[in-house]
């Protein structure tokens, strides 16, 4: 049953995280789930969970904006990869229950790093502003994972500010130009 559920999760994450606006929301939701699970297992639910959920909400807003300007096909591969990685982070948290030390922490860090790299890569190959913002959002998710792992409130705040900035920038972008690309 659990395997079936996890398979559905992976398929969902790989199929929905195209450029249609669902991608950033899905990544951010995975990140928030990962953060909350890890904090809940440690028994300290606090500011980090609230910030992760807030980040997911901000990226939800970004996804709503992206519905008007979908990304091109070429840029979806990097986003898909990043979505799969975020899903792997959640799976790690689900499978490896118990004390959060050693292997799990390292795997979580590596997943965050890989998410950053995938996000940066898909932002670098992006042509239009929308795909650029989506890639940067994936990278921000990775930074959020790493910041939670080291309990760094300053970096978490920076990530939130950057997410707000991306929202503002995308809101000011002209709607007509991104459509055809």
């Amino acid at each position: 049953m659990l395997v079936l559920l996890l398979g559905v999760l992976v398929i969902l994450s790989l199929s929905t995280s195209g450029g249609r606006g669902g991608g950033p929301v899905w990544h951010a939701a995975c990140t928030a789930a990962c953060v909350c699970l890890s904090r809940w297992m440690q028994g300290q639910v606090g500011l980090a969970c609230i910030m992760a959920v807030g980040l997911a909400a901000l990226f939800g807003l970004l996804g709503v904006q992206m519905l008007h300007i979908p990304a091109a096909r070429r840029e979806r591969s990097g986003l898909r990869l990043a979505g799969g990685l975020a899903c792997v982070a959640v799976l790690t948290q689900v499978i490896m229950q118990g004390p959060q030390d050693g292997m799990t922490a390292r795997l979580m860090g590596m997943t965050g790093l890989a998410a950053i790299l995938c996000g940066v890569w898909s932002a670098c190959i992006a042509r239009g502003p929308v795909a650029l913002c989506a890639g940067l959002a994936c990278g921000l998710d990775g930074v959020m994972l790493l910041a939670v792992r080291t309990d760094d409130l300053l970096v978490m705040g920076e990530v939130i500010v950057a997410a707000i900035g991306l929202n503002v920038l995308l809101a000011a972008a002209p709607r007509v130009h991104g459509r055809g690309e």
């Binding site: 790093l113 950053i116 940067l136 921000l140 790493l146 080291t150 950057a162």
Partner: peptide, 22 residues
């Protein structure tokens, strides 16, 4: 935006790995 924010994200990730001391 692309260059600076990508660079900052990469640098932040690298800094976390350095601080973790694996």
């Amino acid at each position: 935006l692309r260059m600076e924010l990508c660079g900052l994200l990469m640098a932040q990730g690298g800094l976390f790995v350095l601080q973790a001391g694996w």
